[in-house]
Design a binder for these strands. Structure first.
Lengths: 231, 231
DNA sequence: AAGTGGTCTAGACCACAAC
DNA sequence: TTGTGGTCTAGACCACTTG
């Protein structure tokens, strides 16, 4: 592991522990016996982590109140884990797992030809027997990637599986969010009345090359869980 | 302007114009007659702009399809400008402008004492006489910051005014998003029926020091405008 | 073998803030 | 005046990809 990562990690731990380490570049150069470059790189990392901020000619200071909470919503497929962390013991039901040609809207978002097949399935997440979220996902993946329903239900995230097995990782995502009255399908899946408000989130996930690889549409029960985005 | 910014700007223009400039570090060092540091800094900037990606031992490449669209939603107070850009000619109505003690929920988010007053007002944005968005905002600001209703309606963003006059700038924001049925107030403000779905977004904006300075709650007509978040 | 980006050293000068 | 972070130079070695 490169020096600057080690330094960043050490400082991040100290910051999260509430200690405010001496943060001037010179002091850190002496403390770690390195030149300025790795120190600056480590500090840049802490800035992008949101742990410190820097002011020219003034210094480097820890951010006031570090947000400990890591909310769901931005993290892809994090809902199950998020609920589990809070002791809510969610059930995840996967069905309709198959390779298929997606509808036109999804084909366009994923830039697929009219005959290209991708992996798809639907997932329903329930807490105490009450459904809170219903989603369908389309994943561009190797043909030999065929996880079982059990694997998907236990992992909570197909993208995670894909990353573990093939090293395919995604960097960018774009979320489109709106509210609408539930139609019949959504109402029956979520056990609400037709016309009740639901939250719809459509997400396109792309690799760092800018190539879209995953499209997902989530329908949430209104007021059940708030989604959090940070920027 | 520092060298690396100039280089980044030149390359960004070329990339957006569709030209794919030679991107190896050595080539750029020769082209701009600089050392490696500013070149690397410029390229790092392009990466965070989302214009290029880099692969170790392979090279630096333009991102597949550069998203030209700059969506509203993440930008604070950008709705009016966003609609205007699309030729929709929105009307912005500001009312109830005053300094006041916010309710407990907002006080907590802004970390205020029980008697501290902040600037507040409500804004309704309409397109063709039809309301699309209703919001209330609370802004921690100097007492002498008292913009007029006219200034607020024309600027589209109180935060922008604050930035221009006092140099106060905000970096972080956190959005909580959910759907709910409209209550009586929301229904009458947005001219929808009670119980119709609306989208609620509560946003806390903080300075880079981590100090929260603005709290806003927006209620949107459902399906009227989608909100877009990228990460 | 040649070329790439990632890392690191050891210097230097600058604008700016604080004392 | 001193110390800070921002910028830049001129070197170096490395792991890794590609021909």
């Amino acid at each position: 592991m490169p020096l600057h990562r080690q330094i960043q990690q050490i400082l991040a731990e100290e910051l999260r522990a509430g200690q405010a380490p001496v943060m001037t570049e010179v002091a850190l150069m002496e403390r770690f016996n390195v030149s300025r470059a790795p120190v600056r790189q480590a500090l840049a990392g802490l800035v992008s982590e949101g742990l410190v901020y820097r002011e020219r000619a003034k210094g480097t200071f820890p951010v006031d109140r570090v947000n400990v909470e890591r909310p769901a919503g931005v993290q892809f497929g994090g809902l199950v884990g998020y609920l589990t962390e809070r002791g809510l013991d969610p059930e995840s039901t996967v069905r309709d797992l198959r390779r298929a040609v997606p509808p036109a809207e999804v084909r366009e978002a994923l830039r697929l030809g009219p005959d290209e097949e991708v992996l798809s399935f639907a997932r329903r997440v329930s807490v105490k027997g009450q459904p809170v979220s219903y989603s369908r996902i389309w994943i561009v993946s190797p043909e030999e990637f065929l996880p079982t329903v059990e694997e998907l239900e236990s992992s909570g995230s197909a993208v995670e599986l894909l990353e573990q097995r093939y090293g395919i990782s995604y960097q960018r995502s774009e979320h489109h969010v709106w509210a609408k009255p539930a139609d019949e399908d959504e109402a029956s899946a979520l056990k609400v009345e037709v016309g009740d408000p639901v939250l719809v989130i459509e997400t396109t996930v792309s690799s760092r090359e800018g190539k879209p690889g995953v499209w997902r549409r989530v329908v949430d029960r209104a007021e059940q869980f708030k989604h959090v985005f940070t920027s």
